[in-house]
Design a protein around this nucleic acid. Structure first.
Lengths: 262, 262
DNA sequence: GTCGTACGTTGTACATTGTACATCGTACGG
DNA sequence: CCGTACGATGTACAATGTACAACGTACGAC
């Protein structure tokens, strides 16, 4: 079968039951279960945190739990659903600072920071698809918490969702780049310097500064400004500032609700 | 070996030679080549456009070219490098509208739109990692073109790169969601309606509106406003507007350079 | 108590992938 | 004209998710 690496693979009802820990209706018979869902989630998350999404293997998780690979299928319908519950559990463990009464920029910055921390602690969360997010207690609690940061600013419901989506999408995109940077640094034996050492001469021969004046000038300026070709931390600072400025024109319209909370 | 789905897998010099079509130094001997790099790129791109990144298989591309799978390795060192050249070729084929003299918002909107079109025509380009972009003629030409839209606005070199990165990262993140939406719609036989039909009752039973007042209210408002749980087109419009507003505070500082070009 | 049966566990097996390797045939340089 | 470099290919292997069947366990009904 196709390797999913994507959430929401199977039966939604089964997945939801898993997420909300719905107890199975039938009476337990047969041998006692040696594990439980949370143990599987914990083991799988530990493996993925350290070895990345490509290291998440049913065999690997089973080995961690000293159990045969197929045993996992007693607790989880498949790998896709495992990712679902892993993600929801990670959402559920996020810290949720109370910023009521603070200016909206502070509140939104806190939300961004919390997500950034998630993506740093669990890099794989930045990479998995969140198109149909796992509607478990973790995800919903996260959503609720983050919406409160946008409450009382004079935005209507759809605008609140829009702003939050934009903010989170920015943080995730940034984290994805950062995660990829670390992943490629680990996987390939080629360091950035070695790469440039090997690529530089050929590039210099083939890349005519006269043909690409801006690209060569700006590219080298940006490259030397940050240490590498791209600096996710800098991009985060820059992007978040721009983004908040952009939201300001929406939030700080001439309404009384905005000014009282800004 | 691990399935890459990531660019820049191997020797940078070999990849760059491929990208810039450096002719191999040695004199050709032996049987004549039945194919060439561009034919492979074309076939691979066609396959990937229609069947997505998971459909991109060396065997599949070989079949398309009526050739045995291993033959491809004559023209390409491996799958990672194939993705590199595919990406660069796609970049090279992008349309590049001349917007000199237009207000900067128009110019940046055009850049965003061109990338959006790329991601719509070749959805897989939104999904592949672009951490170390393929420094081929396509990518560099794209970079040069896009920087011109930011030239003469009073930004320094690093700021130009920052702004462009932010803009492109936004468009890509948006396109990624859209691509995922279409992919899941194709792969799973479950439509959005079927999904909600199966998930709705259980969710209603388990999700207490009193416990999650904002989430339930805003979530349903956003869900009904757009047809589905998420509307990438709407998110694009909203996000681009906010983003340009955010860049405006940087670009329209009280400098003469900005006002003369806005 | 006894026994049937539902269920947890596991070994085996298969399809699918990227690609290493050896083989074979071809056509160019000497 | 012929040795050899090179293109094409068949075979093979490792890694993956997971279907399937076999096996053993312990609970519920009597």
């Amino acid at each position: 079968m196709r390797a999913p690496d994507v959430t929401s693979g199977g039966d939604p009802a089964r997945t939801l039951a898993l997420l909300w820990r719905e107890p199975s209706t039938a009476a337990r018979r047969g041998p006692q279960r040696g594990l439980n869902l949370d143990a599987v989630i914990e083991a799988a998350t530990a493996v993925t945190n350290t070895e990345g999404l490509t290291g998440l293997t049913m065999r690997r998780v089973a080995q961690e739990l000293r159990v045969s690979p197929m045993t996992l299928y007693t607790y989880v319908p498949g790998k896709a659903e495992l990712l679902d519950v892993m993600l929801d559990a990670a959402y559920g463990r996020m810290s949720r600072a109370d910023t009521t009464g603070q200016p909206w920029r502070v509140r939104l910055t806190a939300v961004a920071e919390e997500n950034r921390t998630l993506f740093e602690t669990h890099p794989w969360t930045a990479t998995v698809s969140t198109l149909r997010p796992p509607l478990g207690p973790g995800a919903i609690g996260k959503y609720e918490h983050e919406l409160t940061a946008l409450d009382g600013l004079g935005l209507d419901d759809v605008e609140m969702d829009d702003c939050l989506t934009l903010l989170l999408s920015f943080v995730q995109a940034n984290a994805r780049v950062a995660a990829e940077a670390r992943a490629t640094a680990q996987l390939t034996t080629v360091t950035d310097e070695q790469w440039w050492a090997a690529a530089g001469p050929l590039l210099a021969r083939v890349l005519d500064p006269a043909a690409y004046p801006l690209a060569t000038r700006v590219g080298s300026a940006a490259g030397t400004a940050h240490g590498s070709a791209h600096d996710p931390a800098h991009a985060y600072e820059f992007g978040l500032r721009r983004l908040l400025d952009g939201l300001a024109t929406l939030i700080e319209r001439t309404t009384p609700a905005a000014s009282e909370n800004s």
